[in-house]
Amino acid sequence: RELEAFAERFKQRRIKLGVTQADVGSALANLKIPGVGSLSQSTICRFESLTLSHNNMIALKPILQAWLEEAEGAQREKMNKP
């Protein structure tokens, strides 16, 4: 249940930020998480549509959570600048 809720929230917030699935995939490489490079657009799509295996969903959740927090933080900074 929690994974499904996160996937839905992730998709809504990604769209609100105006970021494509492909952008998310390539931006993950910038997070410098050990062992994590970029991901394909189709992987992000399959995460959002819950068609990845349960284990893959569990593995990707903290990575996508980290990206989302960073992206939303950058958005807030941009909006707070005069």
Rank of each mutant, 00 (worst) to 15 (best):
R1E: 12
E2H: 05
E2F: 04
E2A: 04
L3I: 11
E4W: 09
E4N: 08
F6A: 03
F6V: 03
A7D: 00
E8C: 04
R9S: 14
R9I: 12
F10A: 01
F10E: 00
F10W: 04
Q12L: 08
Q12R: 06
R13Y: 05
R14F: 00
I15S: 06
I15K: 13
I15C: 09
K16Y: 07
L17D: 00
L17C: 04
V19W: 11
V19H: 06
T20L: 08
T20S: 07
T20M: 02
Q21S: 08
Q21C: 08
Q21L: 10
D23M: 11
D23S: 10
D23K: 04
D23Y: 07
D23A: 11
V24C: 03
V24P: 00
V24R: 01
V24M: 04
G25S: 12
G25V: 15
S26Q: 15
S26I: 05
S26W: 13
S26T: 07
A27G: 06
A27Q: 09
A27F: 04
A27E: 10
A27W: 08
L28V: 08
A29D: 05
N30Y: 14
L31A: 09
K32T: 13
K32E: 13
K32L: 07
K32H: 15
I33A: 06
I33R: 05
I33H: 06
P34N: 06
P34F: 07
G35F: 15
V36G: 06
G37Y: 09
G37K: 08
L39C: 07
L39F: 05
S40N: 09
S40R: 06
S40A: 07
Q41K: 12
Q41R: 10
Q41L: 07
Q41F: 15
Q41G: 12
Q41H: 15
Q41V: 09
S42R: 12
S42D: 14
T43A: 09
T43S: 07
I44Y: 00
I44A: 00
C45L: 08
C45N: 08
R46K: 12
R46V: 02
F47T: 01
F47R: 00
F47M: 02
S49T: 12
L50V: 12
L50T: 09
L50P: 00
L50N: 10
T51G: 11
T51Y: 03
T51E: 14
L52W: 02
L52F: 04
L52A: 03
S53Y: 06
S53F: 00
S53R: 06
H54M: 14
N55S: 11
N55F: 05
N55R: 14
N56M: 15
N56F: 06
M57V: 04
M57C: 04
I58G: 06
I58Y: 07
I58H: 05
I58W: 07
A59S: 11
K61L: 05
K61H: 04
P62R: 03
P62M: 01
I63H: 12
L64Y: 06
L64F: 03
L64D: 01
L64W: 00
Q65N: 08
Q65M: 09
Q65E: 15
A66M: 10
A66S: 12
A66T: 11
W67V: 03
W67Y: 05
E69G: 05
E70P: 01
A71D: 02
E72P: 03
E72I: 05
E72Q: 05
G73Y: 15
A74P: 09
Q75N: 09
Q75R: 10
R76C: 13
R76K: 12
R76Q: 12
E77V: 12
E77N: 08
E77K: 11
E77H: 08
K78F: 12
K78I: 10
M79I: 12
M79H: 09
M79V: 12
N80A: 15
N80R: 10
K81P: 08
K81C: 15
P82Y: 15
P82Q: 13
